[in-house]
Design a protein around this nucleic acid. Structure first.
Length: 255
DNA sequence: ATGGTAGACCTTCTA
C-alpha cells in the first residue's frame, strides 16, 4: 500500500505530470493540493482512465484539494465544525479502513499579517477535527502541504530564516498540537537527515541550489506507524519541464 | 530594501 501527497500548483497545467507520476509510482491513494479548479472543471475522465476514483473540493483560481484512490472513497468531508470557510483546503475520505485527511494549510504570508492570524485559527480548528477523527479511526493519515517547517533540519538556511513565517514558534506549536493527537511525522521515522526538502521557490534557481523547505508531510497514527516501511520525497518531478514548485511525497505500508 | 518566477485573472493577487 502506497499513500502519496503532492501540491501540483494547478492541476490544469500539471495533469500530464500527474499522469506520468501515477504511471511510474503507482500510489494506491494520492492527496493533491492547489488544484486551482472549480469542481465542474475537474478532469474526472482523465483520472478515471488512470484507474482512480476521486473526491475533490475546488474553487476558482486558488486552493482546491482532491483525493485519488484505487478503491472507493466514502464518508467525504469538505467542511469542519467551527470553520465557516469559503477557501477549499480540507478534504477527508475513507478508503477501505484507512481514514485520509488531506490539508492545504494556509500560507500565512508574514508574521502579523491578517493571513497569519487566519492560519493559526485555521490550524486550531483543524486540530480539533483531527482529534475527533482519531477517536473514530485507528488507521488515520493526515497529509498535505502544511506550510510549516517542523524544525531547523527542514530549512535550507535555518539561521537566516530564524523564526520567520513557516518557522515561528506559534506555527510550530500548532503543528505539534496536531501531532499530539497521536500522529507521527512518517518521514522522520526513516531519516533524521537535514537538508531534505519538498518545496523549492521558482526564483533564484532555488532548486538547483537546494534552497528549499520540507513542508509537505504525511502524518500517521500508531496503527499505521506499526506497518510503515518507508517514507520518501521524490525529487524527480521537480526536475521535469514546467514543474510544480513542490515534489510528491510517498509513504509505503505493509498492508 | 527589493526582487526574483509561476499560475490565474483581467493588470493584481497569491504563493
Amino acid at each position: 500500500m502506497k499513500i502519496a501527497s503532492w501540491n501540483v500548483n494547478s492541476l490544469k497545467v500539471r495533469l500530464p505530470h500527474l499522469q506520468q507520476w501515477l504511471g511510474e509510482a503507482a500510489p494506491d491513494i494520492i492527496a493533491l493540493q492547489e488544484t486551482k479548479l472549480t469542481d465542474d472543471k475537474f478532469p474526472v475522465d482523465e483520472i478515471a482512465a488512470m484507474g482512480y476514483r476521486v473526491a475533490y473540493s475546488g474553487q476558482k483560481t486558488y486552493n482546491g484539494v482532491a483525493i485519488l484512490a484505487r478503491g472507493e472513497l466514502g464518508d467525504v468531508v469538505t467542511d469542519i465544525e467551527g470553520l465557516d470557510d469559503p477557501q477549499r483546503r480540507i478534504l477527508a475520505a475513507t478508503v477501505g479502513d484507512i481514514r485520509v485527511i488531506n490539508l492545504y494549510v494556509v500560507n500565512g504570508k508574514a508574521l502579523g499579517d491578517e493571513k497569519y492570524a487566519y492560519k493559526l485559527h485555521w490550524l486550531a480548528k483543524v486540530r480539533d477535527f483531527i482529534a475527533g477523527e482519531m477517536a473514530k479511526h485507528p488507521k488515520l493519515v493526515v497529509l498535505g502541504d502544511f506550510n510549516i517547517c517542523r524544525d531547523d533540519r527542514d530549512v535550507y538556511d535555518a539561521a537566516a530564516w530564524g523564526e520567520d513565517i513557516f518557522c515561528s514558534p506559534p506555527e510550530r506549536a500548532a503543528l505539534q498540537a496536531i501531532l499530539d493527537t497521536g500522529l507521527h511525522d512518517s518521514f522522520r521515522l526513516f531519516s533524521d537527515e537535514a537538508g531534505l526538502f519538498s518545496w523549492w521557490d521558482y526564483r533564484q534557481a532555488a532548486f538547483r541550489r537546494n534552497m528549499g523547505l520540507r513542508i509537505d508531510l504525511i502524518l500517521i497514527s500508531d496503527a499505521l506507524k506499526a506497518v510503515a516501511t518507508s517514507s520518501i520525497i521524490d525529487k524527480g518531478p521537480r526536475k521535469w519541464e514546467q514543474p510544480s514548485d513542490h515534489a510528491p511525497v510517498a509513504l509505503e505500508l505493509n498492508l
